[in-house]
Computed example of a mutant assay.
Amino acid sequence: MESPGRYRYWPANTLYAASQDWFSPYLSRPVRELLDAGPQAQWLLRSPRNADVCILFTDIRGFTDLSRAIRSDTLFRTVDACIGRQIRIIEHYDGYVDNFTGDGLMAIFEGPQMADNACRCALEVVTRALPAVRYGETALAPIGAGLHRGDVAMGTLGCESRRTYTAIGDTVNWAARLTGFARGQDVVISERLRGALTAEIAERFAPVQTDQGRADIDAVVPVYRSRRS
Rank of each mutant, 00 (worst) to 15 (best):
R88M: 09
I189F: 04
E200Y: 11
G144K: 09
L130V: 08
R149A: 11
D151Q: 10
E137R: 15
G136H: 01
E203L: 13
D103M: 08
Q209H: 11
Y93T: 05
D186M: 11
L178Q: 04
V152L: 08
R177M: 07
A176C: 04
L140A: 10
I90R: 02
P142A: 13
L178R: 07
Q113V: 06
A81V: 03
R149C: 08
I217D: 00
D151R: 14
I90H: 06
S161G: 09
H148V: 10
T166Y: 06
A122K: 07
A199G: 03
W174G: 04
D186K: 13
Y93P: 07
A153P: 00
D94T: 13
Q212N: 06
Y165H: 14
C82N: 11
A206R: 12
M154I: 15
D116W: 07
F205E: 02
V97D: 00
V97Q: 01
I108H: 05
D170P: 02
H92Q: 13
G158R: 08
E200F: 11
A196R: 13
H148F: 06
V79T: 03
Q185S: 15
T179H: 05
A196L: 13
A202N: 07
V152Q: 01
L140P: 02
E91Q: 14
A139P: 00
V208A: 08
A182C: 10
T138A: 11
I108G: 02
M106S: 05
D151A: 12
A122E: 03
A202H: 01
D80S: 14
G169E: 05
Q113D: 15
M154K: 01
R120A: 12
S161D: 05
A132R: 12
G102Q: 01
D94Y: 11
Q86Y: 04
L105G: 07
P207V: 07
Y93L: 09
R88A: 15
R194Y: 07
A215E: 04
I189E: 00
E200T: 14
E203H: 14
L105Q: 04
Y165C: 11
R149Q: 10
R177N: 04
R177C: 10
I217R: 00
D170G: 09
A206N: 00
E203Q: 15
G158C: 07
V126F: 07
A115E: 08
R120L: 14
T78M: 14
D103K: 08
L147E: 02
R85D: 06
I90T: 08
Q209G: 15
G213Y: 03
D80C: 08
I89W: 02
E110F: 08
C159Y: 05
N117P: 00
L157N: 00
G213H: 06
Y135Q: 07
A167C: 15
V133M: 06
I217N: 00
R192Q: 10
P207A: 12
D116Q: 06
L147V: 13
G136L: 05
D98F: 07
E160V: 15
I217K: 02
C159Q: 05
Q185M: 12
L178M: 12
I168F: 08
P207M: 10
G144A: 11
M154P: 00
E160F: 14
G144I: 09
L140R: 05
R162E: 05
V172W: 04
R204K: 14
R120C: 10
E91Y: 11
Q212V: 14
A81W: 01
